[in-house]
Design a protein around this nucleic acid. Sequence first.
RNA 1: GCGGGCGUGGCGAAACUGGUAGACGCAACGGACUUAAAAUCCGUAGGGCCGAGAGGUCCGUGCCGGUUCGACCCCGGCCGCCCGCACCA
Length: 859
Amino acid sequence: MARYNPKETEPKWRQAWASADSFRAVMDPARPKYYVLEMFPYPSGRLHMGHVRNYSLGDVIARFKRARGFSVLHPMGWDAFGLPAENAAMERGVDPKAWTYDNIARMRDELKELGLSIDWSREFATCDVAYYGQQQSWFLDLFARGLVYRREGIVNWDPVDMTVLANEQVVDGRGWRSGAEVEKRKLNQWFLRITDYADQLTDDLATLDRWPEKVRVMQENWIGRSKGLKFAFEFAGSAPAGFGAGLEVYTTRPDTLFGASFVAIAADHPLAEQVAAKDSAAVKFIADCKRGGASQAEIDTAEKMGFDTGFRVQHPFDADRTLPVWIANFVLMDYGTGAIFGCPAHDQRDLDFARKYALPVTPVVLPPGADPASFTVGTEAYTGPGTIFHSDFLDGLEIEPAKAAAIARIEAQGQGDGATVFRLRDWGVARQRGWGCPIPVVHCDKDGVVPLPKSALPVALPDDLEFGKPGNALDRHPTWKHTTCPACGGPATRETDTLDTFVDSSWYFARFANPDAPDPIDKQAADYWLPVDQYIGGIEHAVLHLLYARFITKALADDGQLSVREPFAGLFTQGMVTHETYRRQNGEWVEPGAVEITTEGETRRAVLIEGGEPVVIGDSEKMAKSKKNTVAPGEIFEVYGVDAARLFVLSDSPPERDTQWSTAGVHGAWRFVNRVWEEFESQPTGAAPAGDDEASTALRRATHRLVKQVTEAIESFRFNSGIARLYEFLNLLKANPAAGATPSLLAARQDALSAFARLIGPFTPHLAEECWGRIGGAGMMVEAEWPAFDAALTQDAVKVLPVQVNGKRRGEISAPAGAEPAEVEKLVLDDPEIARRLEGLTIRKVIVVKDRIVNIVAA
RNA sequence: GCGGGCGUGGCGAAACUGGUAGACGCAACGGACUUAAAAUCCGUAGGGCCGAGAGGUCCGUGCCGGUUCGACCCCGGCCGCCCGCACCA
């Protein structure tokens, strides 16, 4: 019997699918549609195991839905702009464009090797001028809608990548790609008004019921909506210049206003700067504040520091009280108004500050049951529920009504309004880089910033950019930026900033509906295909890509270009592929291929294959070149075939969890592939329908059960469980071999194999085709319908019920499926073995759960 | 500090709606085949105790308690780990 040979079969079937154009997505109003999308890859040039997992997961869904009769869209593209290409250009002197397209070509081959059911006719890269030209088109539309603006602002500057970063791209004070400490710089910057959508972006999270809770919560926290009161304190005495209208603060606790003992402003607040202009001590204080780091440890341990400006403000509700104005290091300029009032009794930070500078601490919220005469606050602020006291017109109110009353009073006094404040900032989208989508505007001495007319699109990148040195290649190109002003016809310069690559990935899913459309989005096609029914990718994009894409979708919907307001109806975040790490005695990382592992009982040891030096086996960690614990997919395909690799990354762990790659594991999957093939080969051709006997009936029932189980497992993303059922079923087939089988068993086997071939299709598609052909399946398996099951046949005719006595298993009985409790009870009590167990005991109660279990309560 | 998640054999895990805990796989061990090894195939397997054996028996899903005829699952309280956010007023 010939061993299954993936090197022969796998390319053959891929060729067959391509020839038949099996995966072309077609708008078919007669069928329900299903759009499966995995986050598109950055074309680094090499496929890694994370890709294998991501795209295999999506392919399972795509193939399954296809077999279930859906009209499936499953496209692929490339997130192709960005810094790695420029870095490669600098390091190796290559052209970023050529480098990128070379990488795409290589990765396309590798992805195609995976046997994915992708409609390759829709492929595009974001660096195709046909794509980014369309992006410029809708950018201008958003510009016209006032969603794009330019202003000077303090921005995050990555000194290594030499570009501006969005807040979302700064992690722990460092650039998300470079890891360099981010500097604050004042620059003219382009922004997208994502804050206009902050409310919707929060509210609509509730509609995303097929998103992981975790991601929704992360987005909600990131947007950080808070409701409170914005109001201005009037200055007592003459107001500083520019503060005639008072000093505006934001609070979520207007109910505690009578507990206020100071007002604090951020070190970079305009008033602080004004004070510093006249006071060298203030200058020094502000400098000290700015020196404090932004890291977690520094914030946790940072002491509260303050500087009394000497100004005093009037308490809004008490004409007899004034409050001092301090500059404080714990107040942030970029949240709220950059100024607060401090209520030490009910806010820990304010309390720490007040204790340090001996400011009054007046409790105004009385905890339930506390005595108003004796309640005091020591070193811990009280933030719990209670009743307001020491607060004039608010006395006796609970917190929420007191907030409302305080806001109403402030509004009546004309000093402020109830306000919603967000943590979310507008999205800074300009990057000072040459390898990106040019922002389609010009700068004219006469007309200022002028958006280009659509007729001037696309604004294409020049082919002769010079990337050999740091900085913006577009800006230093000798001729590209010089143009004429569309308004006055005079000389003008093009904007040389390009768009953040997250803009590129904020609408690609919509472009896939029709990638050749003359407009950015073919509305008719998008109306058919969108939203994406199942989106699959890593959790790392929870607040970056996924938030931006939601925003752009809403903005384009408001512009009439899209009908959906949410791009991704279902989101699945898959775990990483990890691998054990190995280190030599000197700490050097060692690649898995150089290590030999031996086991003695339960102890595993590792040595270098060359030289035998002992190696330390470390934790399983995300595959990374730096730790040398990567495994190249291509090498695995070469040895075990693509199907075995796909099967293993899907079988070992639930998809949302990390999965540990191991050679032994993929070997096990490969063994399964071979055993499946042997089973199909052993089946004689032409097994005809025949009568039933016990063995064939049991096999038929098991087949129906298998179909049910695998179907449900795929629908609920429990691929590992579904695959376990397939392994189990293969064991059952081997226990009912073709050799020596009765005609009826052979016929049951034939039906079982037919179902089995289709059930393994989503996981091991090449093998499935080969098996389908072997048992005489009509046409290609990929065109076959998903097998159906008969619910009645998923149950065995006779059930073995465990029998418990007082909750402990004491035996079992056989009963017909669906037997009534009374019937089962009689069977149990007639059973001699059970009777023996009950000797000397009085039966108090017999609980029979139909088809499940019997429990006898006895004493 | 706030929020989310997780805790089950040597390992990855499974267990439907509260109903036989550990399916399936990896590693291991025993056997067959082989001159030998690899590969492959067959078998064993949570732990303790009793028994020559068939088998019996007790313990067991992070810990303590509760609800229930019955708890990995529900409730209360703790412990540990992972992830996200964080001086956000």
